[in-house]
Design a binder for these strands. Structure first.
Length: 428
RNA sequence: GGAGUAGUACUCAAGAGGCUGAAGAGGCGCCCCUGCUAAGGGUGUAGGUCGGGUAACUGGCGCGAAGGUUCAAAUCCUUUCUACUCCGCCA
């Protein structure tokens, strides 16, 4: 959500930005907001004046009561009643205008950074840099579910019976490997001075609507029956929600946190659930990082954050690349964002394993997260990035450490978390 | 899940329909006295948010949240959230 003052002062900039994101259908919204805002302020001004008058009159009644001049009161009451009638009308109008403005402001996209490449959709995202050689071995790399089953680590059949499609049992060393990756990722972030946090896995609807639109909510979030609670789709929801409506002190910034949580997603829509593998599923686990910082620091953090993820994957012998989101693919709340993609030697292409975003002050404005500054309060900047998610990270690991004989090497950094084990052997 | 108590600004805290943007204190700024890890005295100061105004300034809202009663609500009523205590249940 952008600052409405930007529309008051620089409509053209907001429109230009919409064009850059190829959302021309939203262009009329800017003028609509401009007009509605003007009406709103007029309405508020008139209402405020009337309320001031009413307050004065009410006060004078108080004085008359004290002085015992009861006879003069009736006339004043009448006047107040008249003012109240008009105030009621204006208040209704004001509420309506506010709603209309908010509705539009929620869909007017955040101003993107000038470095964001212009493009229509994800096909125009830009590869910035590769880390590690994308090796294609001479032997064939099996499909992720097949590798998992070959080392005895996956049972989707049972999961189908207990929970349906989109769920899985990870078994034995694979389950341990999955936990090992998350633990390694967690410890890596702790070493970088991020505070480890286990957040609530369910949140209330007002927090949900603070972080996403109704459409997104419908497509992603599982609702708990009979309660005002939703299962989180990512710990970012609880982590940013933690600060909703808060005013922080400047010297508390930056706040850097890394959180673990299971994530639940309906995955309704374009791609849907993957039938056989564990690439797109209803439930996964994720180590996440979030930063709340001063506006001037957010780009430094952005660059640090995606590099952390790159290093973690490189330490597990997984080649990755940084793919920058082009203007058209960038979510409306974001200023700049990139995906970290891992190399898939089977598909011989990169696939998404994480996403790093700088949201500027948009999220903070929407949730009312402020900083107490010397010249008054202001909205801080929020960023989030995937440290590592499983099973997706697991797929990347398995494919890139797969040997011709069907065994899988365990990267050195994970071995301590695997009881010293160096290799997973094929059992089937 | 049941029963009770409470929620006031950065913090503590007064207030029990009109004179309360909200006493008092801590805090914070400055000054003085004293000196060993303290304390005392003086003096000044702020306040969140949305508007109007070039500005000085000024108006609305605001006492956990949302409604209601009233000419007038921090104060009365309803709903709700949170914390604490007791009981129940449970990893």
């Amino acid at each position: 959500m952008i600052d409405i003052k930007l529309i008051r002062e620089n409509k053209e900039l907001v429109k230009e930005n919409i064009k850059k994101k190829f959302q021309d259908h939203k262009l009329p919204l800017v003028d609509e907001v401009y007009d509605l805002d003007e009406k709103f302020r007029n309405c508020k001004l008139e209402g405020d004046k009337l309320r001031a008058e009413k307050n004065k009159l009410s006060d004078s009644i108080g004085k008359l009561v004290r002085d015992g001049k009861k006879d003069e009161i009736a006339k004043i009451k009448e006047e107040v009643a008249k003012a109240n009638d008009r105030i009621t009308v204006l208040e209704e109008e004001q509420v309506k205008l506010e709603e209309e403005i908010k509705k539009r402001m929620m869909v007017i996209p955040n101003i993107i950074d000038k470095t964001v490449p212009i493009g229509k959709d994800d096909s125009e995202n830009v590869e910035i840099q590769k880390f590690g050689d994308p090796v294609v071995p001479k032997y064939e790399i099996p499909y992720n579910a097949d590798i998992l089953e070959a080392v005895g680590g996956l049972d989707k059949e049972s999961a189908g019976r207990t929970s349906g499609n989109g769920f899985y049992y990870l078994m034995g060393d694979i389950a341990r490997l999955s936990s090992a990756m998350l633990a390694y990722a967690r410890d890596y972030m702790i070493d970088k001075n991020f505070i480890y946090c286990i957040p609530p896995f369910m949140i209330r609807s007002d927090v949900v609507t603070g972080v996403m639109s109704f459409d997104e909510m419908d497509a992603m979030m599982y609702k708990i029956e009979g309660e005002d609670l939703y299962l989180i789709g990512t710990s970012e929801h609880s982590m940013i929600g933690k600060f909703k409506g808060q005013i922080l002190k400047e010297n508390e910034l930056p706040i850097t946190m890394t959180s673990y949580s299971p994530c639940f997603r309906k995955e309704v829509g374009a791609h849907g659930i993957e039938e056989r593998g564990i690439y797109r599923v209803h439930q996964f686990e994720k180590q996440e990082m979030i930063v709340l910082c001063k506006p001037e620091d957010s780009f430094d953090w952005y660059n640090k954050m995606w590099q952390f993820t790159v290093e973690i994957f490189r330490n597990m012998d997984i080649p990755v690349r940084q793919l920058e989101c082009c203007s058209g693919d960038l979510a409306d709340l974001k200023v700049k964002s990139c995906d970290i993609e891992a190399w898939s030697p089977r598909q011989q292409k990169y696939f998404e394993v994480g996403s790093c975003s700088n949201l500027g002050d948009a999220q903070a404005r929407r949730l009312g997260i402020r900083v107490k500054g010397e010249k008054g309060n202001y909205f801080l900047h929020t960023l989030n990035n995937t440290v590592l998610a499983s099973p997706r990270g697991l797929i990347a690991l398995l494919e890139n450490n797969y040997n011709e004989d069907g065994s899988v090497n365990i990267p050195k950094v994970l071995q301590p978390y695997m009881g010293g084990k160096k290799k997973l052997e094929k059992v089937k």
